[in-house]
Design a protein around this nucleic acid. Structure first.
Length: 224
DNA sequence: TCGCGCTAATCC
DNA sequence: GGATTAGCGCGA
């Protein structure tokens, strides 16, 4: 008896866990409903059999296991169709030598098992999808970090080149070293998938893949 | 009346 | 302890 309660309790817990995992709002509603509608457990009546002297006595139910052949035929029939019409039930019962009610009960239990299995499969599938998504999220976050580092390095490189350029201007004082001459010289930053064209000390253009130039101010790089 | 959910009882 | 059979209550 205790075993039965535990089995049921675990199944309910599992289902509620699934619901809480994927549908937290529905879970909270269900949990509330459960609290509001706590019903007392039903007691099952024990089977009664008529004695020879017309007295009834309570006996423990004997569960009759179906033979392998019976189960095979039932499984085949279930495989064809999960629902059981009256005619098919009667025909199966006749073929199996069972009570039509037994056939109906077997189909009912089989549908319940099938439903549980489908639920478990769906849960497993969703769990895998979720785990894959988490992995992809971490991968993308790592990629973003790497790209930020690369951007930081690129900025340092630009600053270095600007300093070198300034020192060239002050030392040579030549008209050919004006800022306009630098317009033609592109820094090769191919490894970052972009090229940058120097404009002045605080501003430069970035060419994206579509060759659309975007103006970036030096101080904007701070928060990128 | 039937199917379903729940669960006890039983088997292995 | 999991799987199976079946009783019971409820809703459609």
């Amino acid at each position: 008896m205790e075993k039965g309660l535990n089995m049921k309790g675990n199944k309910v817990d599992d289902q509620m866990e699934l619901i809480s995992y994927f549908y937290p709002q529905i879970y909270s509603q269900l949990a509330q409903q459960q609290e509001e509608t706590v019903k007392p457990r039903r007691r099952r009546r024990k089977n009664k059999v008529e004695g020879r002297d017309n007295t009834s006595e309570v006996v423990m139910r004997k569960r009759k296991l179906l033979s392998e052949e019976q189960v095979n035929l039932l499984e085949r029939s279930f495989g064809d169709q999960h629902k059981l019409e009256m005619e098919r039930k009667a025909k199966l019962a006749s073929e199996l030598g069972l009570d039509p009610h037994q056939v109906a009960v077997w189909f009912q239990n089989r549908r319940a098992r099938w439903k549980n299995k489908k639920l478990e499969e769906e849960y497993s599938k969703l769990k895998t999808q979720h785990e894959d998504t988490i992995i992809e999220k971490y991968r993308l976050e790592t990629e973003v970090l790497k790209m930020k580092e690369q951007l930081c390095e690129a900025k340092k490189k630009i600053e270095r080149l600007l300093l070198e350029h300034k020192s060239d201007i002050s030392s040579n004082n030549s008209p050919t070293s004006s800022i306009f001459s630098m317009e033609q010289s592109h820094f090769n930053l191919g490894e970052f998938g972009m090229e940058e064209q120097l404009m002045d000390d605080n501003m430069f253009f970035v060419a994206d893949y579509q060759s659309n130039y975007v103006t970036l101010w030096d101080n904007e790089l701070e928060w990128i």
